[in-house]
Write a protein that binds this DNA or RNA. Sequence first.
DNA 1: ATCTATTGTCTCACTTTATGACAATAATTC
DNA 2: GAATTATTGTCATAAAGTGAGACAATAGAT
Lengths: 226, 226
Amino acid sequence: MKFIPNLSYDCVIFGFNGKTLKILILEYHNTGLFALPGGFIKKNQSLQDAVNKGVEERTGIKDVFLDQFQIFGDPERADPIAMRRILEANNQDLKKNEWMMGRFITVGHYALINYEDVDPKPDHLSDSIDWYDINSVPKLMMDHNEIVDRALEVLRNNISEKIIGMNLLPPKFTMKQLQQVFEAILDQTLRRTSFQRKMLSLDILQRHEKLFEGKAHKAPYLYSFK
Amino acid sequence: MKFIPNLSYDCVIFGFNGKTLKILILEYHNTGLFALPGGFIKKNQSLQDAVNKGVEERTGIKDVFLDQFQIFGDPERADPIAMRRILEANNQDLKKNEWMMGRFITVGHYALINYEDVDPKPDHLSDSIDWYDINSVPKLMMDHNEIVDRALEVLRNNISEKIIGMNLLPPKFTMKQLQQVFEAILDQTLRRTSFQRKMLSLDILQRHEKLFEGKAHKAPYLYSFK
DNA sequence: ATCTATTGTCTCACTTTATGACAATAATTC
DNA sequence: GAATTATTGTCATAAAGTGAGACAATAGAT
């Protein structure tokens, strides 16, 4: 067995489409089972490397911002019946994959990516991998819904750090786009003027000369993070 | 083997003696090696249960506040030479304990306890377990110094939550003591009046009639968390 | 040229925080 | 037992931050 037994990772991959926050969810062939993208760690691989490779395989982007935010270590969190169903539906050898039905402690991560850069690709066990609005996530297997909830909570607590907006937005963006990211994450509307004043006072934004054009009104400045 | 292989936990146990923040560090017999208290997880045990038991064994207190704050998953973090030295110095069977020299992914925790309640007890491999001032932590084995640094960082970020002061202080305390906890954690002095006003406005404190006596000045009120 | 929608900025009221001042008081000292 | 000392709880004022609205500027549509 090339993997570290009983240890896995799962990843809540956040993207922002300009309006709402979304996450990537995969569906297994012929089972109706939904799950977070996840995987295992090879015996000589760093955790970070394993997760990076997993995210890259499924989204095609490298060097994603990743935060490993919590372990889920309940011995009862495994769901061997669902796992067996997935293996059977994919004609996998049950004997050989028995270890997958055992107990797993999983390392919960969240990733922040620029929605537009992504071309989601299902893995060999999965039918599809798609974006789901954070407010309409389907029932997921095992404790994956809990992992999503906790990831969102952590994200909300960390929103003041510029690194978050940086990873959900293109390199140059308008003040309005930045506000929309905040609103999508916090799930509340913010006051335009106060938001703008606050952001500018933080001294983390660089204003650019070139404006954003194409709409029938005053063109907004473009900003990037310093 | 009754433990989950390649997985361990380590714990930064914080206490507050009224002046400075301290942590518990253990020293292995005849080796001069210092380390954080840690351990392994049994195959059918929850992570939380394992850590709780470990902390209880060494401090004698149950139901400690524990936050599992980060995984350390670098495959190079193991130090088989030091581990062998510890086993040899304790006359342990090297063959039987070979697994301990392998690679470990460790789950970093921090615990907050009331300094006065504690009677630290070394485990069977260790000489001693003692409080060390957070500013004079010795060189620890493996990446344990990094774990301490990260724990302190996380603690600083979480200080506004009442749960932290609650676990580092006795049930009733003065405003000054509370301020000293904040100052020790943040490593900076705070303004007395602003601090007091802020704490009272948070509506998390209960003021008691009984005052704290024994000093040659106006007696401060005692408070507890609501 | 005029209109429309949105932007950047300003103002004023209100809230929160910083900083200093001061009276209250428990134990100590005389 | 009166004066002293150190520290506490609270207030006063100044400074900084935030909420809510107003208004001029302007890129493209009409």
